[in-house]
């Protein structure tokens, strides 16, 4: 499992020849790299570059490795970079269980096996028995947990977090932070966290890169 570490080799992202982010760093599994910066500083473009969905308006260079494999040239869907945004973004036309089923890799065969995985994942985030619910009827914190369960079910190689706690209220925020970091550690995933909240960086405990200052 040790080969899932994330290596950013000379990654640099620019808009109209102005460099927004430049980083070379190795993120070990279970470790969190935090990118701090005010809104509009372009810090999220780093996640987009790693994830493979950078807007063509930006120009970027540098290599991204997952373990020994370079993924820079791969299309987004082959990078297996699980991402969480500040909104849970559950697919509104699917049930809670549908959202999770959608995430399970096709390698898991058989309806029963897939449904069992869904139940297990929901149980793991304290939402057992909600599979048939309309996601819009869940509370904000519940939605965030379903989003987390969804991304973990897709068997990602890394976790990209784009200010995922900023819309939660203070109490939920610290609970959610703990849950996410704990899950990342047990799943042995390297994590890149983008935030403007110092508390996030503290809780993450890893290296902090500051941009746009």
């Amino acid at each position: 499992m040790a080969d899932k570490q994330l290596f950013l080799d000379g990654v640099s992202i620019a808009l109209n020849a102005r460099v927004l982010v430049a980083v070379t760093h190795r993120v070990e599994v279970g470790e969190v790299l935090t990118v701090m910066g005010p809104s509009g500083s372009g810090k999220s473009t780093l996640l987009a570059y790693i994830g493979g969905f950078l807007d063509p308006a930006f120009s970027a260079s540098g290599k991204v490795f997952s373990g020994k494999e370079e993924i820079t040239a791969l299309p987004a869907e082959e990078r297996h970079a699980g991402i969480l945004f500040q909104d849970p973004l559950l697919f509104p036309h699917m049930s809670v269980g549908g959202n999770l089923l959608f995430a399970i890799p096709p390698a898991v065969k058989g309806k029963a096996a897939r449904l069992a995985l869904v139940e297990e994942a929901l149980d793991g985030v304290g939402l057992a028995g909600t599979a048939s619910r309309d996601p819009d009827t869940l509370s904000g914190g519940q939605k965030a947990r379903v989003a987390l369960a969804r991304v973990l079910l897709s068997a990602p190689r890394m976790l990209l977090l784009d200010e995922p706690f900023s819309k939660l209220d203070a109490e939920l925020r610290s609970q959610m932070r703990e849950l996410v970091f704990a899950k990342a550690r047990t799943s042995r995933l390297p994590v890149v966290l983008v935030t403007h909240d110092e508390a996030d960086a503290e809780a993450a405990g890893g290296r902090v890169i500051r941009v746009g200052q």
């Binding site: 969905f53 299309p75 987004a76 699980g82 973004l89 959608f102």
Partner: peptide, 21 residues
């Protein structure tokens, strides 16, 4: 909101699957 597409891609879904589903 194109972040839905980023999420689906992150879940390993191809572009055509993301479009259709």
């Amino acid at each position: 909101d194109r972040r839905y597409e980023a999420i689906a891609a992150g879940l390993g879904k191809s572009r055509i699957a993301t479009l259709l589903r």
